[in-house]
Amino acid sequence: MSDIKKFMYVNRTAPYGTIYAWESLEVVLIGAAFEQDVSVAFVDDGVYQLLKGQDTSELGIKNFSPTYAALGDYDVNKLYVEKESLEARGLTIDDLMALKYEDEDDDWAEKDSIHVVPAAELADILEQQEVVFSF
């Protein structure tokens, strides 16, 4: 067994209506310290977690959406959004936060963390994982 495992976090719930999205993000952040090979998938209502312009000020609860922007600094930069889920909700990548990371293997060039992938490709990515966390 190799020291580094391929970890996948699957997000299928929208933010705020339930706590799953936020507590899932907490796991991803803590997990980053363990230096595994991490991917995060956003499927079904999970794609709503990445919508731009979230503002919880009138609700009086914490807006955790800025935290997604920090993932790149934790080397969590493989965020897969399922194309079918996005399209079914009338959304495009332009509706999502522009999450970036600096690629240390490419002279710290700034790159997109979010990859919109069709179901067939996401299925292949899921197949390659060793541990799948669901929330």
Partner: peptide
């Protein structure tokens, strides 16, 4: 204990089985 215990369990175990909603 902390969330690290979940990550460690994922690393140390051969199978993770999740039960939830």
């Amino acid at each position: 204990s902390g969330l690290g215990q979940l990550i460690e369990a994922g690393i140390q175990s051969e199978r993770l089985v999740v039960f939830g909603d």
